[in-house]
Design a protein around this nucleic acid. Structure first.
Lengths: 347, 347
DNA sequence: CTGTTAGCGCGTTCAC
DNA sequence: GTGAACGCGCTAACAG
């Protein structure tokens, strides 16, 4: 690691777009008042009375200078920042997850909390905390004990908004995986499939295990007295073998796929083998990706309900930070309606 | 808004994880040295000689206390932060874009810059700058004049890493759209299609216009003396009409689709109409989404090369911040190899 | 009432 | 190796 500080190559680091940011002192000077007054006006401090005249003068000066209070100074003084840091594992940066974070971020913004996302991998948490000091960290996956300790020491509140089933910690909201499998299986049973299979392909680079979804599907199968098997495949050939067996089986088989991409792969194999879909075999995916609409036949799928989840995690964050919020619409994290079947053909 | 501060529900808001963060003064006390010494040791300040003994003492004390320097105090003092804020419009939070940001973030991290992402929509930039004061802002889309002015006033460097063709500003790196269309058209011509169509569907919620990609496709068509038409559809019926016309046309028609989802939709319609793909009509998508592998037939597509783009934008950022970097691998932004054809069947 | 002075919070850095 | 000042916004104590 060539640890050259200021390389000889760059002679004058000045000049850059680095114009000095106007400070409250600048505003005070321009308005002909003290810095304290500026602060009182700009923060609408109710413990102080300021004449409309000076008030106007200060606001005008601030506007003309394009004054922005320094987050550093403010946070340093008050000890609390308005920032929420969302931690996303790099394998989870999907569109769905991003929409989830966006929704949660909107809710937090309504309560004065700004949120930014860090896609983990580029730098360890310890280093990250060297650059930002958020009021809270919202993690989509469990944090290690070291990381938790780090946050505790830094006085940063820890909130968990899991996108998969992980062991609960304090302040945990989880996108319930059981519901997903349950919805898939129920849909298939309702459509008259009298035998179920839960299928997962090779997991490519993410640690979400089918266990939760499978358990949900199994529960639904049990409720209806329908048998359910669990199958996985690692290669195209293994998948072909599965499909082959299904082809020559009796009755109507319902397939719950781990996700839409898996479902599309299975569906492709079913086509290749000339299996009658949805007549002999029915299949349901999970996620409702755009491509699901255009397969042959179009894929039935289950869409996660991100709205309630996002709201719940936002509430958990607000609560942890002692920010008051209207809890009439508070969502019970245990009863979140996380999945709904999207009706399409294919079954 | 019921502005109750400490809700009756939570009796003792104390005890929270809010233990006071240890400061450099704490470390100094514990090590029996001055705060200045602590700073020198922890920053490996080369202008100061510290005896190994004190050095050890300081490091030990810091470790025992779990000391983390406050980013606020550091930034306040030094005037510069190590943070890069990436701005993503909410319509662009796709997997591809996230991978792009992740790659750029990794490069920046190698040079001591930490990056966080803000998905625009939840809060305006002005408010955001109230919570974080980054050294640079990296935006994926053009900023408004107000926003630019805001950043300039705040002394924040502005870098553009466009994911589509937008008018260039200073420090702009663009994921060249022409290359994409060019690659699609070239592939089709190479496969013997003697007539081309560029197709775009209804754009759903994003402002990326096909113009650049279309122009690239046209250029490729011209190079080979092949005619190219531009077609758009808004509804399924309009698409059906297009496909119908193609069905009864002469020769071999090559279709360049705006993106993979569009391609899959067109492909579905081609199937419905019984068009011979890839015999009579060939089609190429753009993006290489996972689902492309499982359509009927599997979709040929073009994958954007994010690596060079990410590297280029990271370099642009480092340059703007006067951070020295090894520019032997510097990428010329004008000549970025942004697209490569992924071989599949279908054509 | 209206506004000012002074000092804090924390890490960095200059001068001794 | 240390003392002290600094960067910037907030607010308790105080004066007009």
């Amino acid at each position: 690691m060539p640890d050259e500080r200021t390389a000889p190559g760059s002679p004058a680091p000045a000049g850059e777009g680095a114009r000095r940011r106007p400070t409250s002192a600048d505003v005070a000077r321009r308005a002909g008042v003290s810095r304290a007054t500026v602060s009182f006006v700009l923060n609408d401090n109710p413990t102080q009375r300021i004449s409309p005249a000076t008030r106007e003068a200060v606001l005008a000066a601030a506007a003309e200078l394009g004054y922005l209070p320094s987050p550093h100074a403010a946070a340093l003084r008050s000890g609390r920042s308005k920032l929420v840091l969302m931690l996303v594992p790099h394998w989870a940066s999907s569109e769905t997850v991003m929409r989830y974070l966006e929704l949660a971020g909107s809710h937090l913004a309504e309560h004065g909390l700004l949120s930014v996302t860090h896609i983990e991998r580029s730098a360890p948490l310890r280093e990250l905390l060297t650059a930002v000091h958020p009021a809270a960290v919202l993690s989509l996956v469990p944090l290690s004990d070291e990381e938790s300790a780090l946050l505790a020491q830094a006085g940063v509140v820890e909130v968990h908004g899991y996108i998969a089933d992980f062991p609960d910690r304090t302040r945990t909201v989880t996108l319930n995986q059981e519901h997903m499998g349950h919805a898939q299986a129920t849909h298939l049973v309702d459509r008259g499939y009298d035998r179920l299979v839960y299928v997962a392909g090779p997991e490519i680079g993410h640690p979400i295990r089918p266990a939760g979804r499978l358990a949900g599907a199994r529960a639904a199968a049990d409720e209806h007295g329908v048998p359910l098997e669990h199958r996985t495949y690692r290669t195209e050939d293994e998948l072909a073998a599965l499909v082959d067996a299904w082809h020559s089986s009796e009755g109507r088989l319902g397939v719950c796929a781990f996700d839409d991409v898996t479902a599309l792969e299975v569906l492709a194999s079913l086509r290749t083998h000339g299996v009658d879909v949805p007549g002999h075999v029915g299949i349901v995916g999970m996620d409702d990706i755009p491509a699901a609409r255009f397969s042959e036949p179009p894929l039935t799928t289950v869409r996660p309900q991100l709205g309630p989840q996002a709201l719940a995690v936002a509430h958990a964050t607000l609560e942890a930070l002692d920010v008051p919020f209207d809890d009439t619409e508070k969502v019970a994290s245990g009863e979140m309606p996380v999945a709904a079947v999207v009706q399409r053909s294919s079954t």
